[in-house]
């Protein structure tokens, strides 16, 4: 049924578009966020683990659907590839990306614009200080 709806909209000349910003720059991290402080009293045992770094990017991408096509007709996936220090192979940052639910933000004629936030969970244990760069890939697949 979903496929029928999609086919109908495309047959009518509608397009489905994915829009991404030119670039995403996540907010800088702080030592307080990672470890609670720069100098931590400690009892001599195993040092406490690092905190998980999470960044939320509002309106990270937009999906333009023909009017009447539900975003539930699609599965949206996002992943970050090769995030790390430029030129340093050993410092790759594993990233888990969570796509939050799409929300309708505006209508443009026959198109409806849906927007979603992304949550980035960063494992920075092997990265060095500096500007880390990588590629965000978002894919939308018809169910």
């Amino acid at each position: 049924m979903i496929a029928v709806v999609l086919a109908a909209s495309l047959a009518a000349g509608g397009t489905v578009q994915l829009e991404l910003p030119p670039q995403l720059v996540l907010e800088p991290l702080s030592v307080e966020e990672v470890a609670g402080g720069a100098a931590i009293p400690w009892d001599g045992g195993t040092v406490p683990p690092l905190g998980v770094v999470v960044r939320r990017v509002s309106g990270a991408f937009r999906l333009l659907l023909p009017r009447g096509v539900s975003p539930a007709s699609f599965e949206v996936r996002a992943q970050v590839r090769e995030l790390g220090n430029p030129g340093k192979e050993g410092g790759r940052v594993p990233v888990k990306v969570t796509v939050l639910p799409l929300r309708l933000v505006e209508s443009r004629g026959e198109l409806e614009v849906w927007e979603a936030d992304l949550l980035f969970h960063l494992d920075l244990s092997r990265a060095s200080a500096g500007t880390l760069s990588g590629r965000l890939e978002v894919s939308v697949v018809g169910r």
């Binding site: 991404l20 670039q23 995403l24 720059v25 060095s128 880390l132 760069s133 990588g134 894919s139």
Partner: peptide, 9 residues
């Protein structure tokens, strides 16, 4: 779609 992503560390 792809876009560049940066993290200031």
């Amino acid at each position: 779609g792809n876009t560049s992503i940066y993290v200031v560390y």
